[in-house]
């Protein structure tokens, strides 16, 4: 291979990389349907929730108003995808262990079995930082509806492993309740992008505070 050929390939690779890279300051997209009301742009928001965490503390949208939320839907006896998703959540929490703005929520879709005590045992055995990761139990149907607003499918299915069918998405929600990014919890290769998106969102809030 001659020098010109090498130079040409290097230049071409550089151009492709520049075109494919996004500016780190570029705003994250707003996921979901965007509408116009009174001349203003209205982005999709996740639904309201009122669930008890593993310490029997009521957690609501309002109580987390100043937090960036990373959420998933699971159940403790889930024999299929949940452990993989939880492992990715643990990686993400480790990446933000020194960032109090980021809070983690895992909503159980099996509240009949997953009471507060069971969620506490589950959290204790995971060995995670429970001050910023809440395992939440509440009304089953309200949780199914809530999952839809997070773009997560969750429903009862007696033929599914464990009795529930659900997707393993990990969802990033900003302080205003908008869905801004997600990863596939069953695919570890998608986790680094979500971590990067969370960092970008946190940095944007910090930059706006200055």
């Amino acid at each position: 291979m001659n020098k010109f050929c090498c130079l040409f390939i290097t230049a071409w690779v550089t151009v492709v990389m520049l075109l494919s890279c996004k500016s780190p300051n570029e705003d994250l997209p707003y996921l979901g349907q965007t509408t116009q009301a009174d001349g203003k742009t209205v982005h999709h928001k996740v639904g309201n929730f009122s669930h008890y965490n593993q310490d029997s503390v009521l957690v609501t949208n309002k109580s987390l108003a100043d937090k960036v939320i990373v959420a998933d839907f699971f159940f403790t006896s889930c024999p299929s995808i949940c452990p993989k998703v939880i492992r990715e959540m643990m990686k993400i929490q480790e990446a933000f262990k020194d960032e109090p703005m980021v809070t983690f929520l895992s909503f159980t879709i099996d509240p009949k079995r997953d009471d507060v005590a069971r969620l506490k045992l589950y959290a204790d055995n995971l060995g995670i930082d429970q001050s910023r990761w809440y395992f939440l139990t509440g009304d089953k149907d309200a949780t199914f509806d809530l999952a839809n607003t997070f773009f997560v499918a969750a429903f009862e299915d007696k033929d599914a492993p464990g009795g529930f069918d659900h997707s393993g998405k990990i969802i990033l929600v900003d302080k205003e309740g908008h869905v801004r990014s997600f990863s596939e919890g069953t695919d570890p290769s998608t986790t680094p992008k979500l971590i990067n998106d969370i960092r970008r969102l946190v940095d944007l809030y910090k930059a706006n505070q200055k």
Partner: peptide, 15 residues
Amino acid sequence: ANCHMEDGTGLSRLI
């Protein structure tokens, strides 16, 4: 592998 993971390491004290 869903529980014991591809690398066999399980999950904390749960698996």
